[in-house]
Design a protein around this nucleic acid. Structure first.
Ligand code: FES
Ligand code: FES
Lengths: 131, 131
DNA sequence: GTATAATGATACCATAATTGTATCATTTGT
DNA sequence: ACAAATGATACAATTATGGTATCATTATAC
């Protein structure tokens, strides 16, 4: 998990905690102790991706656009770290001669599928509530 | 999986395939089509770590130091990518206030333990044989 | 209606990690 | 002695990450 995803998740959890109240970046920064311009960038991205709703102008800020139960960790990972790529070939540059049969690939794929399944079960709300 | 691990694993598989014969880097390069000086570095590391045995001098090269069934993918990952770190805290800089209770941490840890267990089952020989 | 406090958009920069190169010394079989 | 290999190590290029800075735009509060 990169810093992007990390910060974003924490911010989302906090926003979710302020049920309904618009939260500004400066507020978040005070709480999360994260570099402000960086966090701004992240929230802007989340806003573009439809996860947050933004309110401009004085006393503006951000709000969740969905139920916290509908914000999945995998989505954040996708946004900030690109698609959860299932290890295509374990030699990336030269396309692999035996990509169809490669045993390692099969094993890794199976593992990644499991991880993905588990990750799909993690949402903002389940982190807040603790189930 | 990084390029290091990737190349190393392919090299090991190939060497394992040449049962007993000493394999030189130049031979490997011809087969694997990987930058030579880079591969050399990798094999030197594997040799230092006791996974390969090296033979200097004319017609020298490398040989497996263990049974292919005893060369584990996890070991390569450890060597080239550092210890398989179980996501300590999802905010790395400022130590987390609730590191004991953090729900995400618990969930991630559980997933990583599973992956580790599966990864521990992957050896060079099982990639060659296909079981 | 204007000042203020917020976001939107974007370009830039610094550092670290990854990936790869180059070189020279040493060893050993022929 | 020579050739062909590894040992050791320093260097360089590229990319990814993490972070800044700036200016424009919008909307609320007074
Ligand atoms: S090496 Fe290409 S898919 Fe396994
Ligand atoms: S945030 Fe620190 S362990 Fe979860």
């Amino acid at each position: 998990m990169t810093r992007d995803t990390d910060y974003a998740l924490r911010a989302l959890c906090f926003i979710a905690g302020c049920k309904g109240k618009i939260v500004s970046v400066s507020k978040l920064v005070r709480v999360l102790k994260v570099p402000q311009p960086f966090l701004r960038k992240l929230l802007q991205i989340l806003s573009k991706k439809g996860i947050l709703k933004s309110y401009k102008g004085n006393s503006g800020g951000f709000l969740l656009n969905n139920d916290p139960g509908n914000i999945f960790l995998v989505d954040l990972i996708k946004i900030f770290q690109g698609p959860f790529i299932l290890n295509e070939c374990f030699l990336k540059k030269h396309p692999c001669p035996n990509i169809k049969r490669c045993i390692l690939r099969k094993k890794i794929t199976r593992i990644e599928e499991y991880v993905l399944k588990k990750l799909k079960g993690i949402t903002v709300s389940c982190l807040l509530k603790g189930d």
